[in-house]
C-alpha cells in the first residue's frame, strides 16, 4: 500500500515537470512582458528604464535559465516568484487570497452536486421509466449541455435582477458584515448573520458550478444503482422477503455509493475550467479568475503558480481516486 502510494507520487513528478515546462514556455512565448505594462501609461518611461527593469527582473535572460531559477526558488525556498501586479509574492496571491475562495466555491459546488445526485439517482433507479425518471434524465442532459456562464447569467437575471435583495449579483461577501469578534453577548447572533451573508453570496455561483457534475453524477448514480439492484445478493435479499425500502437503502445504496466517490476526484479538471467561467460571471475573487487576469496582465509568476497548483490538484486527486478505487474494489491490487 505504502509502496503503491510512493510509486504513484514518483510517477507524478515527470508529469508535473512537463506541465511546468509546457506552461512556462507557452507563457514566455506570448509577446509582451510586465514592463511593457508599466511603461504604457507613463509618458516619462524611457528606453533606459525599460532596459534597467528588464535586467532587474531577470527578463533579459534566456528562458531555460529563468526556468531553472524559478524551479530552484520553488524547491529551495518555496518561492513562487513575485507578482508585479499586486506587489506581493505570487504565493501570497494564490495561497492566501485566491485558493481559499476557490476551495469554498468548488467545495460547495461538489457538495450540492452530490447532495442532489445521490437521492435523485436512487429515485430514478428505483422508479425506472417513470415520469420522474424521464424528467430527471432530461434535466441531466440539460445540465451537461448548458454553457456554464449562460446558466450563471440566467440565474443572476432571474434571482438578482428580477427579485432584488435576496441573492447578490456577484462578489464574495458584504463588506459591512465581517467575522465577529468574540463577545459574550452578541457573538452567536453576529455569527449567524455572517454565515447567512456568506451563503447569500455563495449559493448562485455554487449552483452554477455544480450544474455539470450534478447532471453527470446523477446519471452515474442511476446506472450504478441499477447495476447493483440486479446483482445476485440483492435479489437474494429481496427474495428473503426484506422490504423493498430496506433492500434499496441497506443493500443497494451502500454498494452503489462507493464508485461515485471516485468520480469526485475525476471531476477536478472540469471544476477548474468551470471555475474560470463561473468566477468571471459572478465576480468571485478565486483562482480561476486569477489565472485569466494574470495571463491578460502578463503577471507570469501568478499565472505559473496558479496553473501549476491546478495541475498538482488534478494529479493528487487522480492518485487519491485510484487509491479509493483500489480500496473499495478488491479485484484491484496495489502494484
Amino acid at each position: 500500500m505504502f509502496k503503491y502510494i510512493v510509486t504513484r507520487l514518483l510517477q507524478a513528478i515527470p508529469t508535473l515537470i512537463a506541465v511546468s515546462v509546457l506552461v512556462f514556455i507557452l507563457i514566455n512565448w506570448t509577446p509582451g512582458d510586465p514592463i511593457d505594462q508599466l511603461g504604457l501609461n507613463n509618458p516619462n518611461f524611457t528606453q533606459e528604464d525599460y532596459q534597467r527593469l528588464r535586467e532587474a527582473y531577470g527578463l533579459d535572460k534566456p528562458w531555460l535559465e529563468r526556468y531553472s531559477r524559478w524551479v530552484w526558488g520553488v524547491l529551495t525556498r518555496f518561492d513562487l516568484g513575485f507578482s508585479r501586479r499586486y506587489g506581493i509574492p505570487a504565493a501570497t496571491v494564490i495561497f492566501q487570497q485566491r485558493l481559499p475562495n476557490t476551495l469554498l466555491l468548488s467545495g460547495a459546488a461538489l457538495f450540492i452536486a452530490l447532495a442532489v445526485a445521490i437521492p435523485v439517482g436512487v429515485l430514478s433507479a428505483t422508479r425506472q421509466y417513470s415520469f420522474f425518471d424521464y424528467l430527471f434524465t432530461f434535466i441531466n442532459f440539460a445540465g451537461i449541455s448548458v454553457p456554464v456562464f449562460w446558466l450563471g447569467m440566467l440565474l443572476i437575471y432571474l434571482f438578482s435582477v428580477q427579485i432584488p435583495g435576496i441573492f447578490p449579483a456577484g462578489g464574495l461577501s458584504s463588506p459591512e458584515i465581517t467575522y465577529p469578534a468574540w463577545s459574550e453577548a452578541g457573538f452567536w447572533s453576529d455569527w449567524w448573520r455572517w454565515l447567512f451573508d456568506r451563503l447569500r453570496y455563495l449559493i448562485l455561483p455554487a449552483i452554477t458550478l455544480a450544474s455539470i457534475q450534478m447532471a453527470a453524477w446523477t446519471r452515474f448514480m442511476r446506472s450504478s444503482m441499477l447495476e447493483v439492484m440486479n446483482l445476485d445478493y440483492v435479489r437474494t435479499a429481496r427474495a428473503k422477503g426484506l422490504s423493498e425500502q430496506r433492500v434499496t437503502y441497506k443493500h443497494s445504496l451502500r454498494n452503489a455509493l462507493l464508485p461515485i466517490v471516485t468520480l469526485v476526484g475525476l471531476a477536478i479538471p472540469q471544476v477548474v475550467n468551470g471555475a474560470v467561467l463561473t468566477e468571471t460571471v459572478f465576480a468571485w475573487p478565486g483562482m480561476g479568475r486569477a489565472i485569466v487576469e494574470a495571463i491578460l496582465n502578463k503577471d507570469f509568476p501568478v499565472a505559473m503558480a496558479a496553473i501549476l497548483l491546478s495541475a498538482v490538484l488534478i494529479v493528487v486527486f487522480n492518485i487519491i481516486t485510484d487509491l479509493i478505487y483500489a480500496l473499495v474494489d478488491p479485484r484491484i491490487s496495489y502494484s
Binding site: 443572476i156 438578482s160 435582477v161 449579483a169 456577484g170 462578489g171 460571471v281 459572478f282 465576480a283 475573487p285
Partner: peptide
C-alpha cells in the same frame, strides 16, 4: 467588482 454586469446590478439595487 471586476465584472461590469455585477457592478451594474449592484448600482441599480
Amino acid at each position: 467588482i471586476a465584472n461590469t454586469p455585477t457592478l451594474q446590478v449592484n448600482v441599480i439595487n
